[in-house]
Design a protein around this nucleic acid. Structure first.
Lengths: 218, 218
DNA sequence: GCAGTATTTATACACTTGCATAACAACGCA
DNA sequence: TGCGTTGTTATGCAAGTGTATAAATACTGC
């Protein structure tokens, strides 16, 4: 076998390559955690050689940060889309928001694996921590605004403190159900989590979010 | 400086050493994630040299598993103690359970860091995943039993499906609030999370858990 | 005190890691 | 077509990884 065979390759656009590398990084992390995200493993998955990574990113650290930003971006984007699609009553928009957060692809083992890997490091890494907090607060503010509209629409507007409290609680239910769904998806039937989520929010707010005809009582 | 100085050491009991190594491992993980848990870093923290680890554990993997079991053990132990201390009305016991889950030391950055580090790997590691699921189900069953008692005590016993649903939802609020508290403890005043948690559970169940005099309305 | 044991240290080894550098070749443009 | 640019590969290196092994020393029983 002639050893001097040099690998064939194609030149891809810069944006494309960067995204490919980021995707490969996320694949590695989802499969084997941050430990599995070595430059060589990433390069292998991206179909390039390790050295190329440093041509697009100053160092592995920067690639990881870019990957994290990518994940956060997709998640918030998903949530925003869910909010934007329904432009009707606040009640329905809140319900849609809750539901969107509790069905695939948001509830998904891979997403969770990525989230856990990064979040575990956000505790010790200041930059990651700040990025996460920003995303979280944005999320909660969204919920709070929605809750304000819903309560106002129901004829019982709430004060600042009450709003904050409700937003925190609702956010918590969503997060908790999301967690359970990601960790043990096969324990829940399709739509069950969303159903429970919406029901819980209704109970907490004391407001029906859906039409009465849609509500089932067990 | 004479180079032939050999380090002084003391012989500790086997159990003590194993626990020291496990504690050191958890410290490393809490501080810098699984990546920071190298045999040398662990040994340094435990005040021994790296080789000793392999005298007590067949390999690093086994040490990590032992460490994980240790964490899980402490957590469930904490929860059980919280339940055992209050032996009064179901309502009060549920309230105590919720509160115990939402104040230190359960709500704690270190605990969370450990949880996140291990859980991230539980997705890909079958053994870790099974261990986690067992712990989670035990937790949820506990909640479900408590809810059953509370509802029965309130004069409106619930069916299997309703109980399951409530347990899932309540568990979710607790988890979600726990998450928020661990990730951004400084955003919440003392006891605020517990307050919100208990209030949410009350709303979801439609049952007051505490005496009316303790309830504050915002 | 003294010998025996096994805990603990020290050292070494093979391997992986991220990173640096030079050679190469694919593509754009004349 | 041919040439320069630079995206890409290939190779190498120093530091760090888990593990294996031998030497040393603290403790136990006499």
């Amino acid at each position: 076998m002639s050893a001097g065979e040099r690998r064939k390759f194609r030149r891809e656009g810069e944006e494309r390559r960067r995204q490919d590398l980021i995707d490969a990084t996320l694949d590695c992390i989802a499969d084997h955690g941050l430990q599995g995200a070595t430059v060589r493993a990433i390069a292998l998955r991206a179909g390039v050689t390790a050295g190329l990574i440093r041509h697009y990113f100053p160092g592995k650290e920067d690639l990881l940060q870019a990957a994290y930003a990518n994940v956060m971006g997709r998640m918030t984007e998903l949530a925003k889309t869910a909010l934007a699609t329904v432009d009707e009553e606040p009640r329905l928009r809140l319900a849609a928001f809750v539901e969107a957060s509790l069905v695939p692809p948001v509830v998904d083992a891979r997403s969770f694996s990525l989230w856990a890997s990064f979040i575990g490091r956000a505790s010790s890494d200041a930059a990651l921590g700040a990025a996460h907090r920003a995303g979280y607060l944005g999320f909660r503010d969204e919920v709070e605004a929605l809750v304000a509209e819903v309560l106002a629409g129901a004829g019982r507007p709430a004060g600042i403190a009450e709003l904050r409290r409700q937003a925190i609680a609702i956010n918590a239910v969503i997060d908790g159900l999301w967690l359970e769904g990601c960790l043990a998806s096969e324990m829940f039937s399709t739509g069950e989590l969303a159903e429970i989520g919406i029901g819980s929010v209704e109970a907490m707010l004391g407001v029906k979010l859906r039409d009465e005809t849609e509500v089932e009582r067990a």
